[in-house]
Write a protein that binds this DNA or RNA. Sequence first.
DNA 1: AAATCATTCAAGTAATCACTTGAATATTAT
DNA 2: ATAATATTCAAGTGATTACTTGAATGATTT
Lengths: 221, 221
Amino acid sequence: MSISPKAALLEEFALVARALAAPARLMLLEQIAQGERGVEGLAVKTGLSIANTSQHLQHLRHAGLVVSRREGQSIRYRLSDDRALALMEMLGQVAARNLAQVADILRGLSDGEDAPEPVSRDDLAARLAEGSVTLLDLRPADEFGMAHIPGARNVALTELEHMAATIDPGTEIVAYCRGPYCVYAHQAVAALRKRGFNARRLDGGLPEWRAEKRPVTRINL
Amino acid sequence: MSISPKAALLEEFALVARALAAPARLMLLEQIAQGERGVEGLAVKTGLSIANTSQHLQHLRHAGLVVSRREGQSIRYRLSDDRALALMEMLGQVAARNLAQVADILRGLSDGEDAPEPVSRDDLAARLAEGSVTLLDLRPADEFGMAHIPGARNVALTELEHMAATIDPGTEIVAYCRGPYCVYAHQAVAALRKRGFNARRLDGGLPEWRAEKRPVTRINL
DNA sequence: AAATCATTCAAGTAATCACTTGAATATTAT
DNA sequence: ATAATATTCAAGTGATTACTTGAATGATTT
């Protein structure tokens, strides 16, 4: 007996949603969106065990969100396409606009103050072209090395105080990190604004920037 | 002890994804996207029990995908905003493009033949303006009554053979139903093409049409 | 105030899921 | 071939989920 095509379709759609329904997998997706990575690298980045990481990755692969290829003795995973990234972004948007709890968390990151609207990627591109902005990349150094927006300075949250002294208080600052699930940029903007800087977040992170075919800089391969 | 803001954020995002992770809830969302409805109406349309429907609706409400309001002695649910609809649409797109199984199901609906590209909503609007298209609405009559695209003829799949005789074989036919999860339009297009008609599907269904602020016709309130 | 109606809550059960542990597989290096 | 390495598989456990049944709630109508 075959079930109805409608039920079969809904089951498949639900399969994709289920793949996004575990925080651990969202973490993995956020990492994979930064660039292709092997299983062990992802396990280290996310703090999951190797076996657990592998199982989550297979969920994601089965749902069509990531694809894998063998390279030597390791298996490397990457996002299947830009639609997967767009889906993650949309999920974050719906959560941010419709869930009071998310708004509370984001407000908490901003230390009570309401953060200003993020800078659009178009705006940032224009500002970079005229050199009128200081761009900060808050991600760990290895991710910065894999790819970053040209002209960005890599800085960790813990070193932010230190580096703030080297920034001309007159310039506008734009901060970004991994994407909509990443909190570093929020925290950096809050800290900088508290010190009187004119800082804002970039809308989206590096993956969204790259999905629009904008240029990136790589340091190490 | 409070968990990290990052973990809390991911948990909230996963909550939204989990709300989409059950076929029953996708069915409910598809119905709710047609227009505001009460619990009992949704239960009848989906074939779920009342209590089960109510529980699913509360999942959806908790995830911020739908909102409810009391009207007299019934509680009516509607999509919280267009972002919820966009998220559903994106989910369907990712599934359709990345899951071979979905492609198989859709091909099965087309009886083996590869269906032509859907007509965009812009195209349909232009064609409707110049009157050069026959527009078919495959949804049940009550949903057609709540809202439909101006100029559409309501027809059930079972009556399609019958009504096909009344269509000029020279005109182009566009068919639509509820949205990306609805299979009626696929089946209608396949049946019509088999009979030699020039038929295509509309991209998206009535909710997507309406989300773009295009006009709709209502019969009964 | 009592009765009615639509909806929600609460308890229970079977199924599914996330994670752990230890073994198995497949590719590269010796 | 054998060993080493990266990943996957398989089994087991505690937690969560979907659905059912029957009772409770809360607004309207009599």
